[in-house]
């Protein structure tokens, strides 16, 4: 009888050890299971992701984990996104950035995978994800600067999610020399023009007609978030010593988006998004 119980116990242990890989429980946006990030870095990434969620509604999970023999890093990323439900349920706008390091940390066996939810496949096609990894993350990953890699990767992807950049901008037809040249000329003309305009706005001396020199500026009323301010510029002619005062308006202070999203701990769980294996990855 005891033997049978022993065998049962042993086989149960055997099954638990050799069973399939299980999706771990999430902690926050950033899930640094293998401790490659400092506490401050983790907090900063959580703050960044939380502001991305406020700004665009998209959810991003960062996962650092060891590679497994049972399952590829890509499969892990897909499982994680769908089990945790990263992204809003009706929009599927989730991203999982998975860093899988081999236990012996041999170069070439480590892998970065970015899994893209169904709803973001249009703004972040696989080719673009690959390019973002190459351009914004790869060197930092190689140098083990995982925080910098995550940060600049998230920043780059956010530009596409928020619509600031379009995926088509990234396509391989931007080597159009003539159009680049055209823009350089346009920018050049604009710079010259604005120099000229600011020069013209300097008043001339009443008696000799020479352009006056700016002595100082006084601010009468400071600009606030809600109202614009006023100031006075004092000019003096360098030749005849005539003075001239000119009022000007200080424009309202624009409220930067960085001032919101103070706390890094506004994580309320993921929204139930799903994905079907989209995205790209690199070994390093």
């Amino acid at each position: 009888m005891k033997k049978i119980i022993m065998i049962l116990f042993l086989s149960a242990a055997f099954i638990t050890v050799f069973s399939d890989w299980n999706v771990p429980k999430y902690i926050n946006y950033v899930n640094d299971y293998i401790n490659v990030l400092s506490d401050k870095q983790e907090k900063d990434l959580n703050t960044l992701i939380s502001s991305v969620e406020k700004q665009t509604g998209s959810e991003i999970a960062v996962v650092t984990i060891n590679t497994s023999d049972d399952i590829t890093p890509k499969e892990m990323a897909t499982e994680i996104l769908n089990t945790w439900g990263v992204g809003k349920k009706d929009k599927d706008n989730g991203l999982v950035i998975l860093l899988a390091l081999s236990s012996d940390n041999i170069s070439g066996k480590n892998r970065i995978e970015i899994e893209v939810g169904y709803g973001l496949e249009g703004v972040l096609p696989d080719g673009l994800i690959g390019r973002i990894i190459d351009d914004n993350m790869y060197d930092n990953l190689k140098a083990k600067n995982y925080y910098d890699a995550f940060y600049s990767g998230i920043e780059a992807m956010t530009k596409y999610i928020s619509g600031e950049f379009k995926a088509s901008d990234y396509e391989e037809n931007s080597f159009n020399v003539s159009s680049d040249f055209f823009w350089i000329i346009m920018v050049g003309i604009f710079i010259i023009f604005s120099f000229f305009a600011s020069f013209l706005s300097i008043p001339k001396c009443r008696s000799c007609g020479k352009r006056m020199k700016l002595l100082n500026t006084n601010i009468i009323e400071r600009a606030t978030y809600t109202s614009s301010g006023r100031g006075i510029k004092h000019y003096r002619c360098p030749r005849c010593g005539n003075t001239f005062e000119k009022a000007y308006i200080i424009s309202k202070i624009s409220r930067g988006s960085g001032s919101s999203g103070r706390s890094g701990g506004s994580f309320k769980g993921f929204g139930g998004g799903s994905s079907g294996g989209g995205g790209a990855g690199r070994s390093f």
Binding site: T78, P125, D126, G130, R131, E172, G278, G279, A280, G281
Partner: peptide
């Protein structure tokens, strides 16, 4: 080649989608 890399990313993305599906 950047275009080739992009195409390979699209290809492996499609293959990953096939394996999930």
């Amino acid at each position: 080649d950047k275009l080739f890399t992009q195409l390979m990313d699209e290809l492996s993305g499609t293959e990953n989608r096939i394996s999930v599906a």
